[in-house]
């Protein structure tokens, strides 16, 4: 079977499984956590394009996610936009910010990209939590422009409650699933197509790639912009689904959680981020009873994978499969 054929089969099977979950387990908690899994999975499939496929060590992904979330919340709150219109607008704002971050990182290498992108996210976080000036005054309290440390709420939702009643949460579940399918299809098309070749060539050997006509300037900006779109959209959906946005989405432990998803699944692989997101999410759920050990467990998992299975689960599996086939023929 060809690679696109295999991708399609795997995709259809995964979507079919995901589509039955809300009917097999009609529990609000399960549906909410699965929706959150879809949101994180969107982010890691796009982050993987930058981090794995292009090999650029950017930690800016949660800042782009926050861009989409905050832009959507503000457009809804201050301009009374429908969130259905605010979400794509938020995604486009994330693309613009992604381009600027890509531009700032152009001349930097390896760990310096990580430092700069982390610093950018920290600055955004600090600007938000130290924002206490009154922007709008309600009867009871005054709200700063960015929502400050307590975040933004009451900016509307997707409006599925009027249509589906108590099942609105299942409606949101399927919106999340639809976005994940679109984001995944997009990342597969990019990674397997001519763009993916350019990103990987620049990653493998910069000077040689440039000597074969691949512009580092153009394609580094392209990968930042492309990966920012669905990341921003995921943030926008996060805001719309939970009906609130706060500075906690900048937290380091959340960044670590998503990074672990990519590393466990397999950096730079096609299906690794989805596999990793699912496994890490379930493992995190398992550790919920022992709160104190959650971050510790996460850090240990990350360290073990980096040391022992740097290709992640899917990368290692496909290598073993290739070796098994090689010895068979």
């Amino acid at each position: 079977m060809t690679a696109p054929g295999k991708d399609l089969v795997i995709g259809v099977v995964l979507v079919a499984i995901a589509a039955t979950v809300p009917f097999l387990f009609p529990v609000r908690y399960v549906i909410t956590q699965m929706t959150l899994l879809f949101i994180y999975a969107i982010v890691v499939t796009q982050w993987n394009l930058v981090l794995g496929v292009a090999g650029i060590f950017s930690l800016a992904q949660m800042a782009l996610f926050a861009c989409g979330a905050y832009a959507t919340a503000m457009l809804g709150l201050y301009l009374d936009w429908s969130l259905w219109a605010a979400m794509p607008a938020g995604a486009m704002i994330a693309v613009v910010v992604g381009l600027l971050i890509g531009l700032a990182c152009l001349r930097l290498k390896g760990p310096y990209v990580a430092l700069l992108t982390l610093a950018i996210a920290q600055v955004a976080y600090l600007v938000i939590i130290t924002d206490t000036d009154c922007f709008i005054r309600t009867e009871t309290r005054c709200e700063p422009f960015t929502g400050g440390a307590s975040g933004l709420r009451r900016f509307g939702d997707l409006g599925l409650r009027e249509w589906l009643g108590r099942d609105w949460i299942i409606g949101n579940y399927f919106v999340g699933l639809g976005l994940l399918v679109a984001a995944m299809a997009f990342s597969v098309a990019v990674a397997r197509g001519p763009l993916g070749l350019a990103f990987r060539a620049l990653r493998d050997n910069l000077g040689y790639a440039r000597s074969r006509g691949i512009s580092q300037f153009k394609y580094q900006l392209v990968v930042f912009a492309l990966s920012a779109f669905f990341t921003g959209l995921a943030g926008a959906f996060y805001a719309a689904h939970f009906k609130s946005v706060g500075p906690t989405i900048f937290s380091f432990s959340l960044l670590l959680l998503l990074l672990a998803m990519i590393v466990v699944g397999g950096l730079g692989t096609i299906w690794g981020p989805i596999v990793g997101a699912t496994l890490v999410m379930f493992a995190d759920e398992g550790l919920r009873e022992v709160q104190d050990f959650r971050t510790l467990g996460l850090g240990l998992t990350l360290a073990l994978f980096v040391l022992l299975l740097p290709d992640g689960l899917t990368g290692t599996a496909s290598r073993l499969l290739a070796r098994w086939r090689g010895s068979g023929s």
């Binding site: 001519p194 070749l197 990987r200 060539a201 493998d204 050997n205 040689y208 790639a209 074969r212 691949i214």
Partner: peptide, 12 residues
Amino acid sequence: FDTLSVRENIEV
């Protein structure tokens, strides 16, 4: 381009 196949090297 070490992680790319021979064909992909020429394609890019």
